[in-house]
Each structure stands twice: as structure tokens, then as C-alpha cells.
Simulated scan of single mutants.
Amino acid sequence: MKRFFPVMLICLSLLLGACVSKNTFEQKVNEADQLSQDVAQLENDVATLQQEKKQQQDDMSKLNARLVEVLQQNSKLQRSLLAASAEQERKEGDISRHQQRINMLQDQLNDMQQTNDNLLATIEELQQQVEKERIAKEARLAKVKNTYDQLVGALEEEIERGELTISNLEGKLSVNMLNKILFDSGKAEVKPEGKKVLSSLGGVLNQFPDKALRIEGHTDNVQISSRLIEKFPSNWELSTARATNIVHYLQDQGGVPGERLATCGYSEYQPVADNETPEGRAENRRTEIVLVPFESGVGFKVEE
């Protein structure tokens, strides 16, 4: 079932091949590949968690070995105590000195016992901590996957139309939209068809009140033309203006509370494709809505 959804998309594209253009077919295949990569990433996350669990088990084995060593030292000390007591009593018959020797060894024995108790308590505490971390990590992975599945299900039509994609990279969920859907070339005002997509998106994102939305604007490396340079001196201003306008729309029309929104522009400096080709530049001209942890009354939380 892990690869059912991408395979279904490919089959649907093949069945409709007679009715759609080659570009649409390729787009569907790319989307299917992207979803397959997302599933593979989740599997990698599970493998990483299992590796961490194994490392923790190795650490526990080392602590147990240390405990055995201490207990052996304890046993040796006890034998020394008995041997010393017998030898002292036999040679000197001095009850007082014999008792002092016993007391000294007893103190050492008590110290060793305390060390044993502390080590056992440390082992138990580490075991509890490891278990809590394991449960927390599994819960985070499950929650991210559940949110991803819900987003894909809720935005299935928009995904099929090629209006957006959803990615999950190392537990970071983001909704990715190409700027050709949202903006005309060199402009920051959201197009009518872009507003329709954002309206649908806002309704879905409001279903996740524990997530804040960081809207990130990106451009290609083509410099601003002379006719636009007065309004947008560089791609910094253009990417930031586009992200800001999306924030305004999500708040004013999509009903997303302002405290859950943030905006930033990355200009041309975080490309996802080669800027040397038209296709690569088109991919780099994009807007990403990144879902990050949020708590009402606290605000954005630091991501682990």
C-alpha cells in the first residue's frame, strides 16, 4: 500500500493519455515520483529511528557490563574483609583492632554499595529516558505522516491539476506552488486562479491549528528588468513582496489567524533546479508554505 497512490496516479495518467498532452503526462509522472520519494523518506526516517534504538541498546549493554564489574569488585572486597578479619583475630587476638579493621572495611563496603545503588538508579533513569525519547520520536514521525496524508487527501484535486505539490523532507512538511499559477511575470499581485488555489489551501490549513505557516518566496537568478527595477530593485524585494501578498490573502480571505503566519523572501539563493535551463528556472520561481510547530499563546516553536 505504500506505493499505491503514486502507482494509481501513473495508471490514471496512462488511461487518460489519449486526452492529455505530453507535458501533462510528464507532470503526472513527476508528481508520482515526488510522492514515491516522500514515502522513501519516511522509510528512511523509520530506519534512522531503529538505528538510534540499536545504539541506545548498545549503550545499555555497556552500563550493564560496568555494573557486573562493580559487583565483582564488591564480592572481592567482601572476601578481603573476611580474610582480613580472620587473619587479624588469629595473629593478634586484639578485639579492638580487629573491630576497627572490620569497621573500616565495612565503611568501604557501604561506599561500594552506595556506588552500586547509584549506578543502578542511573541505569534505570537512562532506560526511562531512552524509552521516552523512543516514544516521542515515534509519535512525531507518526504525526508528521498523518498530517502529510491528510494534506494529500484534502488537496488531491489541486495536486492532480498540477497546481501544487506536498513534500515531506526529514519531517519538514511544505506545500509547494509554482509562481506561474500565483503571479504574472514580474508582478507580486496574486492572480485570480492563484486566489482560488489559496482559498482551498487556507480552508485545509485551518484544520491544523497546531501548525504555523511560514510563507517562503523564491525566484530564479534572472535579474529584474529595467522597467520594473524602480518597484523591485532586486529579486529580494520581489520574492518578499510575493510572500507577503500571500500572507495577506491567507489572513484576509483564507481565515488563517495572523499569529500563525510568517513571511520571508529567499530571492534566488535557494534554487531547487538548474537555472541554466528554462525548465529549471520555472521550478525555481516558486512559493513554499512550510508547516512548523505552533502553540496558541506561545507562538512559533523551535523545530528540533
Rank of each mutant, 00 (worst) to 15 (best):
N168C: 15
Q270N: 10
G202Y: 01
L164M: 14
S167C: 06
I159M: 15
P278F: 07
L169M: 11
L261I: 03
Q223A: 13
N179R: 03
S185H: 10
V204Q: 06
R161G: 09
S174Y: 03
I181M: 10
V222D: 07
L201G: 04
R214V: 13
I246C: 05
V204M: 06
D184G: 12
R260N: 03
F208M: 10
L205C: 06
N176I: 13
P233I: 09
R242A: 07
K231P: 00
Q207V: 01
Q270H: 09
R214T: 07
E160V: 15
S174C: 10
K231W: 03
S225A: 14
L178E: 11
T165C: 09
V175I: 15
G162I: 07
T263M: 09
E216A: 12
V247M: 14
Y269I: 08
E157V: 12
N275A: 08
S226D: 12
Q251H: 14
E279T: 14
G194V: 02
G171L: 08
H248V: 09
P233S: 05
E237H: 12
K196S: 11
N179L: 00
A243N: 04
G280W: 00
D252M: 07
N235V: 02
K231N: 04
G258S: 10
I166E: 09
E216Y: 01
T240S: 12
F183I: 02
P233M: 06
Y266R: 06
D220W: 00
K187P: 00
R260P: 01
N206I: 01
E158Q: 15
S267T: 06
G203C: 04
E163K: 14
G217W: 02
D210E: 15
S234T: 15
L173A: 10
L201A: 05
N206M: 07
P192T: 04
V204Y: 05
I181D: 08
S226K: 13
E216V: 12
V256T: 10
K211W: 04
Q251P: 00
S225C: 06
Q253Y: 08
E189L: 13
K195V: 04
G202A: 11
A243I: 04
N168M: 14
Y249M: 02
V222S: 10
V204A: 09
L238Y: 05
N235A: 02
E160P: 01
I215M: 04
E276A: 14
Q207D: 05
E160K: 15
G162Q: 07
D274H: 03
L238C: 09
E170D: 15
Q223T: 12
A273V: 08
L238M: 14
L169G: 04
G171F: 04
L182T: 02
V175T: 09
L169H: 13
A262G: 14
N179K: 02
A243D: 02
D184V: 02
L205G: 05
E259R: 04
D252V: 08
R260I: 06
K211I: 01
H218S: 06
T219A: 08
L198V: 12
E230L: 13
P233Y: 09
I224Q: 05
L198F: 09
G202C: 03
K195Y: 07
L228Y: 12
E230H: 12
E157W: 01
K187E: 14
A212E: 01
N221R: 08
N221A: 14
N221M: 05
N206Q: 12
E189K: 13
G254F: 01
D274S: 13
D220Q: 00
Y266W: 11
V197S: 06
